[in-house]
Simulated scan of single mutants.
Amino acid sequence: MLSVLDLFAAVSFPAIDPVAFSVGPLKVHWYGLAYVAGILLAWLVARDLLRRPGLWRDNTPPLTLQQVDDFILWAAIGIVAGGRLGYILFYDFANVVANPLRIFAVWDGGMSFHGGLIGTTIAMLYFARRNQIRLLSLFDLVACVAPIGLFFGRLANFVNGELWGRPSDVAWAMAFPTGGPFPRHPSQLYEAALEGLVLFIVLQVLARLGHLKYAGRITGLFAAGYASARIFVEFFREPDPQLGYLLGGWLTMGMLLSLPMLMIGLGLFVRSLRANANSARGN
């Protein structure tokens, strides 16, 4: 049990207005700007990777610069539509069944990363087939830049004072405005650091060391890396109140959704290693 002294020891939550700026009646929120910044910077980094043919198998990038420009719109639609639908299905289904109009209440809901991942995957499948692009190489390109969006998205969660962590007495715990009187783990910042910054650096280093030549390897590392980071942070993050802990124990929905992602990621990584080994023996 946290003491009164622990409450006073909590780091003050920075009172940042969720609205970045207003133009007349139009209010622009930091959350929306985070999505724009994440997609824009991911597009710029993707273009830089495609400008370096030596990073790719047979010195041939899987997309042209024009194609990645076209794809960014499909990716944005997949992220937003999938993220919203995923949140409804995974986290808020009962409330939506009771009130279907809640689907459109984006100001009183959320976005799910796993839903956004499914939406973006569908967009990639469609775009690759339509343009006869190597699917795993497209996945690898997107995986290289996806942590940028995760980083900005988690920072936006922090600014909004949402998705906070469990009560804690660590020196950097914060009392969030919507989290009651207890200081809590700033789990949004943990996720921004691990799922965003650290994962981005690791994947960029590996990509520029030549691992994009092995189709599926970067995708596997991204999936396994994200899932591992998410499962770890879930031990510090407060479960969604409408779900709580699953199976009457410590399991959360975030963990449950990340486990298949971890298995798929490890499978893709092992597959790429075996394919490379078989290719080396053939030579």
Rank of each mutant, 00 (worst) to 15 (best):
D6Y: 10
L7C: 04
A10L: 12
F13M: 05
F21C: 05
K27G: 02
H29G: 00
H29C: 02
V36D: 11
G38K: 12
G38P: 05
A42Q: 08
V45K: 00
V45N: 01
R47C: 09
R47Y: 01
R52N: 14
L55Y: 14
D58F: 10
D58C: 02
N59G: 13
N59E: 14
N59P: 02
P62Y: 14
P62V: 13
L65C: 05
Q66Y: 11
D70Q: 09
L73N: 03
A76W: 02
A76R: 00
V80C: 00
A81T: 02
A81M: 10
G83M: 03
R84D: 00
G86V: 03
Y87I: 04
I88R: 00
L89D: 04
F90N: 00
Y91M: 04
Y91A: 01
F93D: 06
F93L: 15
V96G: 00
I103N: 04
A105K: 15
A105V: 08
V106I: 15
D108Q: 15
M111P: 03
G115A: 03
L117V: 09
L117H: 00
A123H: 05
L125K: 00
L125T: 07
A128P: 02
R129I: 04
R129M: 06
R129C: 02
N131Q: 14
N131R: 15
Q132G: 00
S137I: 05
L138V: 07
D140T: 15
D140A: 08
L141A: 11
L141Y: 06
V142K: 00
A143Q: 02
V145I: 13
A146C: 03
A146G: 02
I148F: 04
I148W: 06
L150A: 10
F152T: 15
R154Y: 09
A156T: 10
F158V: 07
E162S: 06
E162T: 03
G165K: 12
G165H: 02
R166S: 08
R166V: 07
P167Y: 02
P167N: 03
P167K: 08
S168C: 07
A171T: 12
F176Q: 08
T178H: 13
G180Y: 01
P181H: 10
P181C: 12
P181G: 07
R184N: 05
H185K: 11
E191F: 09
A193K: 06
G196T: 04
V202M: 12
L203F: 04
V205S: 06
R208E: 01
G210P: 05
H211E: 07
T219P: 01
F222Y: 11
A223K: 00
A224G: 08
R230H: 06
I231E: 10
V233C: 11
V233I: 15
E234I: 10
E238K: 03
P239G: 06
D240M: 06
D240V: 11
P241D: 04
P241Q: 08
G254A: 12
G254D: 12
L256D: 09
S258I: 04
S258H: 09
S258M: 12
L259H: 08
L259D: 01
L259Q: 06
L259A: 13
P260E: 08
P260G: 12
P260C: 13
M261C: 10
M263C: 15
M263K: 03
G265W: 01
G265E: 08
G267N: 05
L268Y: 14
F269S: 07
V270I: 14
V270A: 14
L273T: 07
A280N: 13
R281T: 15
G282E: 14
G282T: 15
N283S: 07
